[in-house]
Design a protein around this nucleic acid. Structure first.
Lengths: 191, 191
DNA sequence: TATCTAATTAGATATATATCAAAATAAAAG
DNA sequence: CTTTTATTTTGATATATATCTAATTAGATA
C-alpha cells in the first residue's frame, strides 16, 4: 500500500531537526560531527535522525578514511514531495478498492504470528502478497542472496521460490549474486 | 521563520488517519460521522484529527442545519507540498542569514516572560516583530476587534498601535470591525 | 421549553520519540 | 598492538500524541 510510504516520508520530515539536517545536506555532504556542531546537538542525536532519514532513503553515506560523509538523495525528496498530491488526484474508487482488497488478501494469507500461510495461486493475490513482503527491503538498496533468503525465511520456508518470484516480477534485479531492489515503476502490476 | 510552517505541515501529514481523511475529503466534503464511519473510528478521534488539519489551514467547515461539513483546501496542500523542495532550492546563505537575523531581533525585543519589551523603531526590525506576533493568527481567519486586542495585550499594553500597524502593513484587512488575516503574499516586506 | 442529533471536550491509557550521558565499536594511524 | 578519532548503541527521561469512553455543548426541531 502506498499509504505507508507517504506517511513515513511526511512523518520523517515533520521534525525541525531533520528538516535542518536536510537543509544542510542540500548544500553538500557533511560528516556527523559537523552536523552536530552546526545544529548544537550531540552526535548520538544526529545518528538517531540520520537513521530515520536513511530509512526513507533520503540520505546515504560514504566513508572516507575515518569519517563518514552523509549525502542527500535529492531525487527521492523531489519524488516524495509530489506523491501526496498525486495520490489525491488518482482515481478515487480504484485506490480505495485496491487498498481494501489488498488488506483483505493480506489478512487471509498471513497467520496471526505474521508468517505467510501459503503462496496464493491467483496471480493478482500473489502480487499483493509479494509487494507486501517487499516492504522489508529498501528501494535502490543492494542485498546479498543470503540476506534475501534470511528475510524471506521469516515468513515462509520456501524462500527459493519466493526469491525467484521477486526476480520474475521485477521487484528485484540480480547481478553476480547481488540483489538490488528495483524502483516501483518496474514492479509487476496485477492488472 | 518558514521552518515552523513546513515542519507543521509534514508533521500533520505524517499520520495515516489524517492522510485517509484528506483522501476522503479530496472527493468532496463530508460530515464528521461519515468520516468516522468510513474509517472505523469514533467521532472524538475524528474531531482530534480535523483540528490538526484545521490548524494548518488544510480543512475548513461549513454548517448546514445540524451537521457540519468539512472541506479540503486543496490549494494549501498543493502549495505546502512544494514548499519543502523550494526551501532547499533557495539561496543558501540568504535563508540562513535571514533566519539568524530574525532570531536575534526576536531574542532582543522579547523578554524572558514572552512579552514584548518595546516596539522597534527600525522598520525592518519592526516588521520582524510584527510578523512573529502574527503567528498567533490563522491566515484567512476572521477575528473580532476585541479578539485582536486581547491577543496583542498578552505581549504589549499598547495594543491599539500594534493593531493599527497590522492594518498599515497589510497583515490584516478590516471590514465592519471584523479583522481578516491576509495571505502572506500581501504582507509588508522589510526590503 | 424539552428533546434530539452532531460535535466537542475531558480524562485516561498506551505508545512513540527527541534528547542526552555514558559505554561500546570500528576503522585508521602510529 | 596500542592509541586516537568518529560513529553507534544503550539506557534513561521527558514530552507528545492517537485513541477510546463518558460527559458536555450547540443547534435544530417539535
Amino acid at each position: 500500500m502506498q499509504l505507508n510510504r507517504i506517511v513515513a516520508f511526511h512523518k520523517t520530515m515533520g521534525d525541525p531537526t531533520r528538516i535542518r539536517i536536510v537543509h544542510l545536506l542540500a548544500k553538500g555532504p557533511l560528516h556527523g560531527q559537523a552536523i552536530a556542531g552546526k545544529l548544537g546537538l550531540t552526535p548520538p542525536t544526529i545518528t538517531h535522525h540520520l537513521n530515520k532519514l536513511k530509512d526513507i532513503n533520503l540520505v546515504y553515506q560514504r566513508r572516507d578514511k575515518n569519517t563518514i560523509y552523509f549525502y542527500l538523495n535529492e531525487s527521492v525528496l523531489q519524488h516524495q514531495a509530489k506523491a501526496l498530491v498525486k495520490m489525491l488526484e488518482e482515481e478515487e474508487e480504484l485506490t480505495l478498492m485496491a487498498n481494501d482488497e489488498a488488506a483483505k488478501v493480506i489478512k487471509n494469507f498471513f497467520a496471526a504470528d505474521g508468517t505467510l500461510k501459503s503462496i496464493p495461486a491467483q496471480r493478482k493475490k500473489k502480487l499483493i502478497i509479494f509487494e507486501h513482503l517487499m516492504q522489508g527491503f529498501k528501494i535502490g538498496e543492494k542485498y546479498e542472496e543470503k540476506e534475501v533468503n534470511e528475510y524471506i525465511k521469516k515468513y515462509h520456508q520456501d524462500y527459493a521460490t519466493i526469491r525467484r518470484e521477486f526476480i520474475i516480477n521485477q521487484y528485484m534485479y540480480r547481478e553476480n549474486g547481488i540483489y538490488e531492489v528495483n524502483p516501483k515503476e518496474m514492479w509487476a502490476k496485477s492488472e
